[in-house]
Structure formats: C-alpha cells, structure tokens
Design a protein around this nucleic acid. Structure first.
Lengths: 227, 227
DNA sequence: TACTGTGAACTATTTCACAGCC
DNA sequence: GGCTGTGAAATAGTTCACAGTA
C-alpha cells in the first residue's frame, strides 16, 4: 500500500468524503447568507452533526484552506469547494420520462439554483410528445442522440418506470452520457466510467421503518452524515 | 468487544447493513415478478452490483435464510426482509408543505405501493388551505398535532423551503413523530430518538460532478451499494 | 490563545476462505 | 457439486491528540 501510494500522482480520495463535500457547501452557503464570514470546524460540525476532526480531515485531502487559530473564511471555502466539485460552470442535462415524476423534476427549482439546467426532455408516449413542460417541448426518444451530441451533454436524469429504466440508461450511455441521476426504483447496470446516483424515497422509508420498529431505537452513529 | 457482545440481547447491526436491506428487497421483488423462485448470493450480487459475501454476511445478522447448495427461496427471503424492516403493516404519514414539491410527493405512487400512506397534508399559506390534493384537503399547520395524535402517526414528510424546515421538524418532533423524510435542502437537528432520511437531488448531482470533472474517472468502489 | 493539519491509534466494514450441509 | 454461514484477515474510514502557527 505504501509503495503504490507514493507512485500515485494524487492520493486516492475516499468516496464518502466526496459525498460529504456538497453537504459542507450547502451549510457554508447558509452561513454566508446569514453574514457569517469565518467558521471553525467546531461550529460547522455542530451545524452538520459531524465531528470537527472529520471536517478537517476531509478538507485536508484537497489542500489547506483554514487559518490556524481562526478557522475557515466562509466565502473562500465556498469558492474552493465549488471548484473541487466542478461547479464553476453550468451543467446541462437531459430528462427522460415525463410522467408525474418527470414533470415534477422538470420544474424543480433546486437544480437551476446550483447551475444544473434541464435543456431537453423526452418520452416514449406519442400522447405526450409535442406538449410543453414549462419552456421545454417534450420530444420523442428518437431525438435523444442528436440533442446530447449537439449540446455535449454529460448528465441524464431518468424518471421512467422501473421496467424501462435499464433500456433508457443503456441509450444514455451509448450517447456518451457519463453521469445519471436515477429516480427509477431499480439499480441500473452501467460501465465503470459512468457514475450513477440513485434516488428512491421508498428505499429511504424502508430503512427508516426498521428503526421505528425496534424496541430500543439504536442511537444514530455520531459521524453519520445526512445525505 | 467479545464480552459486551455476549451480554447484548441482540448483536449490534451496522447501519450500512440496514440501508442495504431495502435494496435487496427491491431486487428480490423484481425477481419474484419474473417468476424466479430461488436465487444464490452470487446471482443477487450480480443484479445489485454487490459482492456475494456481503449479501450473505448482511443476511446472517438476522438469521439463516438460505439453503446450502441451493441458495435462497425468493418468496421466503422477501417475507423475512419485510418482517425485519417492519413492513408487515401500513405506515401512515403526514406531509408538510404543499408547494410544487409537496404536490408531487402527495401524488407519488411509489409510497402506496409499499404500504406507506399520506393521510393528511398541511401548509402555512392561507391561499392553499382548503384546496384539495387528490383525496386530501390541505389543512392549516395548526391542525397538525391533533391529526398526528388521532392517527398515531410516526412519520412526517418535510417538503417546505429550507428556511422553514427546522421549525417544522421541531413541531413534528414535539408531536411525537419518530421518523422524518426530509426533502428540504438542509440537515435539521433532531433528538437522538428521531430518525431522519434526507433527500436532496442537488447534493447528489454535486457529488457526481466531482467525478465528471476528474481526468481519470476513479473506478467506483466495488462494494458501493446504490442508494 | 484558539485554532488547523495530520500521523498514529482506533473502530468499522468488507472480503476471504473454508467447514458444513443439501 | 454447489452453495451458505461465519470466524479471521484485510481494508477502509474515523477519531485522537498534539505539533505548529497566526
């Protein structure tokens, strides 16, 4: 292990760390909006329910952003995290599936706020094609490849029924998409260069009911970062 | 460690294991629907992109559900998992916040399918109160406590803006709710007996763009269970 | 003085590998 | 023969604790 570490151009960063950075960023943005300009790992940890040591260690994978004796300058750390996460640009996305769920996703303001933009939406149902969803016209899936190529799109959002998800994911991957936000209640298979983030509220609820059903509700692990 | 293990009435089960069980259940249900009656940890692992050893170890925390030389009977394992997760009943929930997002959540069919039922919805906006959302009438937040007590509700869904989330969560907790599904882009503080599951698609996207921005897209850790 | 950054210690989780059984 | 269940080994992740510094 030691030997291969030394050969690496950059140390391997644990995936859990990556998943926590957006949470740090979210809280820092809230602090910024409150006019807070400096924050210690202690303060930030209290807001996030994460240990200060974990925050410091996580950040130390990427550089030295704090000032000893003081803490972190909020605007600076926000800038650094945005850079690390690749948020210094707009990300265009395609949306597949314009049922109830797709409709809601198309109009979700939380994406645009953070530089994520749905530029085209698709469905297989002839009844839906041509209808407008806000500023977008629903297109037939057959137009998918052309749109992705034209815009150089790298992210697809899947909001189709579970049974159609794998097929749709395969199409996205074939078109060169490298990231998929999957709302379908299934875990699609993708090649290793493609990144998938799954969102399934039913799965989240089912893990919760396990705990609600226990006599003694086991105390949450202290360091457990909220997703 | 050994000593305290023996004293415990039941071994401590890691939280990661709990979070994976619903994924196993989801895939087993799909297999069941396909008419598959027996599955090995190998097969199931391939479907889920999880190692067979992990599946066997996870299940072994709860009992011996397999048959050596054969595998697991799909319907039996489904039944066991449903029991473990506390899904042998209907779970009634309240929904707070009837903006765009709350509206979509109220109509999401994925909940009812799994025995989760939204029995009442609330908002603070007088403009919305009295309007109907499917079978439900939007009520004023002031009616929250009475509804929760009446139905003995243990789960609340939060779909209010980030700025209102903590306040709403506090109210839910005060009413005796023990589980919260939080769609607000913030990590609310709760007492240790309350379980929170957060869903924030922007956070998921931001972790994804980190990877999309890397030159060499680091290979996903093999055992990483999709959420 | 009050904090960060970080090796080292500790803890948790995953994987291995094999005895035991159908 | 093919698979489970599970201790033990290996890895991964977290926390400690303190040197260093603004």
């Amino acid at each position: 292990m030691r030997r291969s570490d030394m050969g690496d151009p950059m140390n391997e960063i644990p995936e859990v760390v990556i998943q926590r950075l957006p949470l740090y960023l979210r809280t820092l943005s809230a602090l910024d909006a409150e006019g807070v300009t400096v924050v210690s790992s202690q303060d930030l940890g209290e807001r996030l329910q994460v240990t200060p040591a974990q925050i410091r260690k996580d950040l130390s994978y990427f550089g030295r952003f704090g000032k000893q004796g003081r803490g972190y300058r909020v605007p600076d750390l926000i800038r650094e995290l945005r850079l690390i996460l690749g948020l210094g640009r707009e990300w265009e996305m395609v949306l597949l599936g314009m049922g109830r769920l797709g409709w809601a996703v198309a109009g979700y303001p939380g994406f645009a706020q953070h530089g994520f933009k749905v530029v085209a939406c698709f469905d297989a149902d002839p009844q839906l094609i041509g209808k407008t969803a806000g500023p977008l016209v629903i297109q037939d899936i057959s137009a998918l490849a052309a749109t992705i190529q034209q815009h150089g799109i790298q992210i697809g959002i899947v909001a189709v029924p579970a049974a159609a998800a794998q097929q749709v994911v395969d199409q996205l991957v074939a078109c060169g998409v490298r990231g998929i936000l999957n709302y379908a209640p299934t875990a699609p298979r993708v090649p290793p260069h493609v990144w998938v983030q799954n969102i399934d509220p039913a799965v989240a609820l089912q893990a919760m009911t396990y705990h609600l059903s226990q006599r003694k509700p086991a105390r949450r692990p202290a360091g457990r970062a909220p997703a």
